[in-house]
Write a protein that binds this DNA or RNA. Structure first.
Length: 487
RNA sequence: GGCCCCGUCGUCUAGUGGCCUAGGACUCUGGCUUCUCAAGUCAGCUACGAGGGUUCGAAUCCCUUCGGGGCUACCA
């Protein structure tokens, strides 16, 4: 039997969707995916919903949707199936029950009748006595009589795994050898009193049964690895068949605490709505805890699969920096072809109700996009910048309005109106040359002063896309109307 | 408290004993460009947590220390 490093690579992403997938989850998913693709192996998507109190169908659906949106296509998992399914743990309950029964029969696990209150009391005592906390092993070797008494009391037992004396050592692909003395790994629960399995049981059983070869996951799971390995042993899996572990460093918030709502947006759905491109999110996230070296930072999805190796993953945590994500997003937007940019822009324009979806609008949008492409960092800025082209009841922003109330501005607008009235070829080139002659040469004004007033009158704001192109797009009639209205 | 992990510019990182008076990117500051805003471009600021070793030579190896984080559930 070939060992884990020789078998076909099978990597799984196994979130427990107790909310929207967040930045940290996705970084893990991205690395899992990239590693599978890099090695030509399989990317498996599994839902860990053993805690049905917290995992809902909505969150599961959202997780599936998010992964799809990001382009992290899975080879096995929800909706696509696969040879080792089902891929929802809630649909594998009988499998876990069978193994638990087997462990019980083998003596690897035992029934524990301790109540939550009793366990808490033990922990409390351990805390004050300053000794290692954990289950005290009270039910490890219960006599038949003692069991009968508990049963008579109506107590429902949990199934608890027996940790033998000794220690567990494993090689983490990122951190090297890590070992834990079993004195600090207490007997742990596999099955709840109601018969439902816990993560510790399900994760190990599934990884073995789904023939997972590499477990790349968050470092918060590092200290649960000995428990997972203990289950492998009880299952009869030999060490050379264990999956290889790689514990990824955390993605932290700005204030160096775990990323959460408090210190930055975490939900990927939020980034989607805010106009971030999936490839930008992936590119940025890839740089958190990993780097291709050689001062490279711009990485496409394809390049990521070519360059990604676990060896180049860091062991130290990274802070999430929205500013850098934004910068990368802007770069990605600028490198979009017009067609790509157009299809991504459309939903944002429609959602903002700037356009309704007519053919005429589509044409104007297509002509307008090139002049704003290099001016935005997120797609959500598009409606703001293009609104002036579509609005029916046009008005100038109050802030800008005050800037064209003075005599000089009126004079500028009047001159512009006069000069522009005679223009027949309404192209940005001729608009510009006519205005330069009339305002710069004619009135002797600085360009920023002269064009500023026209800009406000025509676009409604002192910040806008390039003036002459904007006027060309707006059309002669509407442009002149707006200048007139501003007088 | 115990166990485990981690420690290079503000942030993400390059760096695996000499190529490092530490490179790139983002941010920030200033300049150029310029019809606004951007984009582009040039320049600048700022880092090997600290202390000991090992070595001709250390960001790179060892030890100690300090700091940060995770786990310590019938959560994952």
């Amino acid at each position: 039997m070939p060992n884990s490093s020789q078998r076909e690579v099978r990597v799984r992403f196994a979130p427990s969707p107790t909310g929207d997938l967040h930045v940290g989850n996705i970084r893990t998913a991205l690395f899992d995916w990239a590693y599978a693709r890099h090695t030509g192996g399989k990317f498996i998507f599994r839902i860990e919903d053993t805690d049905r109190e917290r995992v809902t169908d909505e969150y599961i659906a959202a997780a599936i949707d998010t992964l799809r949106w990001l382009g992290l296509q899975w080879d096995e998992g929800p909706e696509v199936g696969g040879p080792y399914g089902p891929y929802l743990q809630s649909q594998r309950l009988e499998i876990y029950a069978e193994w638990a029964t087997k462990f019980l029969a083998q003596g690897d696990a035992y029934h524990c009748y301790c109540s939550a209150a009793e366990l808490e009391a033990v922990r409390e005592a351990q805390r004050s006595a300053n000794v290692a906390p954990g289950y005290d092993g009270k039910c490890r070797n219960l006599s038949a009589e003692a069991i009968a008494v508990y049963e008579a009391e109506g107590r429902k037992p949990v199934v608890r795994m027996r940790m033998p004396e000794g220690s567990t050592t494993f090689t983490d692909l990122i951190r090297g050898d890590v070992s834990f003395e079993h004195d600090f790994v207490p007997d742990f629960v596999l099955v709840r009193a109601d018969g439902s399995p816990l993560y510790t049981l399900a994760v190990a059983v599934d990884d073995v049964m789904m023939k997972v070869t590499h477990v790349l996951r968050g470092e918060d799971l590092l200290s649960s690895t000995p428990r997972q390995i203990r289950v492998y042993q009880a299952m009869g899996v030999t060490p050379d068949e264990y999956p290889l572990f790689a514990h990824l460093p955390f993605v932290m918030g700005q204030d160096n605490t775990k990323l959460s709502k408090r210190n930055g947006e975490v939900s990927i759905a939020w980034y989607r709505d805010a106009g971030y491109l999936p490839e930008a999110i992936c590119n940025y996230l890839a740089l958190l805890g990993w780097s291709p070296g050689e001062d490279r930072e711009d990485v496409s999805m394809k390049e990521l699969t070519e360059l990604f190796t676990v060896e180049r993953v860091h062991s130290s945590p990274a802070r999430f920096d929205m500013k850098k994500l934004e910068a990368i997003n802007g770069d990605k937007i600028r490198s979009l072809t017009l067609d790509e940019f157009y299809s991504r822009a459309l939903p944002f324009l429609q959602r903002a109700e700037v356009i309704t979806g007519t053919v005429a609008e589509a044409d104007l949008v297509k002509r307008a996009l090139p002049i704003i492409q290099e001016r935005i960092a997120t797609l959500s800025e598009i409606p703001l910048m293009l609104k002036f082209l579509f609005v029916t009841n046009f008005s100038v922003e109050p802030d800008s309005q005050t800037k064209i109330q003075d005599e000089q501005s009126k004079k500028v607008l009047q001159s512009a109106l006069d000069a522009l009235s005679g223009v027949s070829d309404w192209s940005h080139e001729s608009i510009e040359s006519v205005l330069r002659v009339a305002l710069i040469e004619g009135l002797g004004l600085k360009p920023r002063i002269a064009f500023g007033a026209v800009r406000i009158a025509v676009t409604g704001s002192h910040i806008s896309p390039p003036l002459f192109e904007s006027m060309e797009l707006l059309g002669r009639e509407r442009s002149l109307e707006r200048i007139k209205a501003a007088l």
